[in-house]
Design a binder for these strands. Sequence first.
DNA 1: CGTTGAGTTCAACGGCTGATGACTTTCGGA
DNA 2: TCCGAAAGTCATCAGCCGTTGAACTCAACG
Lengths: 205, 205
Amino acid sequence: MTARRTGRRPGRPDTRAAILAAARVAFAERGFDAASIRAIATAAGVDPALVHHYFGSKEELFRATVAIPIDPAELLPAVLAAGPDEAGERLVRTFLSVWDSPAGGAAVALLRSAVSNEWTARLVREFLITQVLRRILEHLDLDPAELPLRGALVGSQLIGLAMMRYVIRLEPVASAAPETLVAALAPTIQRYLTGPLTAAPPPKG
Amino acid sequence: MTARRTGRRPGRPDTRAAILAAARVAFAERGFDAASIRAIATAAGVDPALVHHYFGSKEELFRATVAIPIDPAELLPAVLAAGPDEAGERLVRTFLSVWDSPAGGAAVALLRSAVSNEWTARLVREFLITQVLRRILEHLDLDPAELPLRGALVGSQLIGLAMMRYVIRLEPVASAAPETLVAALAPTIQRYLTGPLTAAPPPKG
DNA sequence: CGTTGAGTTCAACGGCTGATGACTTTCGGA
DNA sequence: TCCGAAAGTCATCAGCCGTTGAACTCAACG
């Protein structure tokens, strides 16, 4: 162990995966700019140059870290299939289950990085527009003129939830049970999707 | 202009204000970590060492930049005074008017920095808890057991709005008229403040 | 006049960053 | 068995960072 040997190590071909895992943690905890290749390499038990050997640059490493795990093309149809009336609740539930899962680390990394890094913000923007909002348009039968606003409103509430729960970590949202949040947020999302946007909620009498 | 002279300049004692203005812009655009003292000094037309001369350290400069302009103790009473039924609409309207004003730059700086910097996040958390949520508790007559959750929900929607409008800048929220957003968000905030949290919105039939 | 002190500049420190290129070792296949 | 490529290491580059301390200039005061 203490005898360092230079050159190729005998067995392990899973180094690349180790680097990716360490990168996911680092980017999620510190964001793109603050996370350093050197720290990632140390966490993975690896020489910093090896990171470049596998991924070429920090930017490509970030893309590899973040691009893999979440595919709205798989998730959204199930969310929207049951019709517009349950879409709000299903959307919140799915959102939380994704972000609470290990793959959610990538999402946190993306969100953290988008805040202090312009090209990452652009990446998030395009992801939202082309992968999420467009799909909602396809599946729900909404007025196309209203769709951008509705989509952005849904996004604002969900991003706000993510900020509270995973970034700022303000209690009790940070540790609340998913069901609590679903119950609280679902009506909001539902109204942004299908309800009226220009007046107070439907009059009681 | 081109003739540089060393030593004390004759007239201008407003250098400190120039540094503060440049710092506000830089921190708002890039966040605490990414903004550099050197860049701030350059933007202010000043030597970097002068920044330390006036402010001591980057952290103190940030505090000076951010601590001044927004005082919830002034704003919140007017928002909440008219009673709980209009609080949602007034809160959104006041929130937007503050963030759209020049002073909003400080808020954007704080939000941007809170994401990649732990002590800034703690600063935001304590600000929210002691300056905002506590005041809401004083003015509205809510169940104290529910207040933390209600406050965090309100905060999640408002922070999400701020992220969409000022950080990620996703249209149409980024450029929407304040009234459009007030109309869309006020019912949400109102429900988080005074409505039911554990069920769907009031049944129509 | 001389002194003082604030305003300002300059050069430098140590440290961290992403990236490069040369080098060595091992493995897999011919 | 030999060879080429993959895996891994090391030293180093250039650049930016926050911060420091010494030096200089100039207005004000006595």
